[in-house]
């Protein structure tokens, strides 16, 4: 079984050569690792390799193929790349994502204020929407001199993480 994995900016080829119980032989970019791997708690793996003990935590991402991986020293964003992922990616150019023209909150919260209205011309840095979470207000500003195309939320609404709130044009 072979997959590609993106880890931050690196893409590696990963292959399962053999597996028996907790023992596994896995090749990463051709480098063979003879390891002992076991899930010790939900989402937490213990890996023994050459006598070293690695405790690795996985946090599920937006899709089942994405993981945030915590090691002792640092946190990585990883994504399993399979045929489906590649296909979606080739089509995703037209898809709507958080980008320059879409204003989304990175955290869940409550819309406190929307000082702009649809059709209004806004300047770079102008406040479009104020979201409050945990008693902290964050202002989301225009990324360029643009026009407010659509407002998808109202003052007092609760928003989810990454929900698009305002579209600019």
């Amino acid at each position: 079984m072979t997959y590609e994995i993106n880890i931050e900016s690196r893409t590696a080829k990963i292959e399962l050569l053999s597996r028996a119980g907790t023992k596994a032989l896995i090749a990463v970019d051709g480098h063979k690792y003879d390891i002992d791997i076991v899930m010790v708690e939900p989402g937490v793996y213990s890996i023994l390799y050459k006598g070293n003990s690695y405790n690795i935590e996985l946090i599920g991402g937006d899709t089942s193929k994405k993981y945030i991986v915590n090691t002792f020293a640092r946190t990585f964003n990883t994504e399993i790349v399979d045929a489906e992922t590649k296909y979606i990616r080739s089509r995703s150019k037209g898809l709507e994502l958080e980008g320059d023209d879409n204003v989304a909150s990175p955290m869940p919260g409550k819309v406190v204020k929307i000082p702009v209205s649809v059709g209004e011309a806004v300047k770079t840095g102008q406040t479009l929407i104020v979201v409050e979470a945990m008693k902290m207000q964050s202002e989301f500003k225009a990324s360029g001199d643009k026009t407010v195309h659509e407002i998808l939320v109202r003052e007092g609404d609760t928003v989810n993480a990454h929900q698009i709130m305002i579209k600019l044009k």
């Binding site: 590696a12 990963i14 896995i26 990463v28 690795i56 996985l58």
Partner: peptide
């Protein structure tokens, strides 16, 4: 971020990979 070396980075990938295939 602290560097954790190639082996550590590979272990991170291996854990994600094993979790996914399981």
């Amino acid at each position: 971020p602290r560097s954790c070396g190639t082996a550590c980075e590979d272990m991170a990938m291996i854990a994600a990979f094993i979790d996914y295939i399981d």
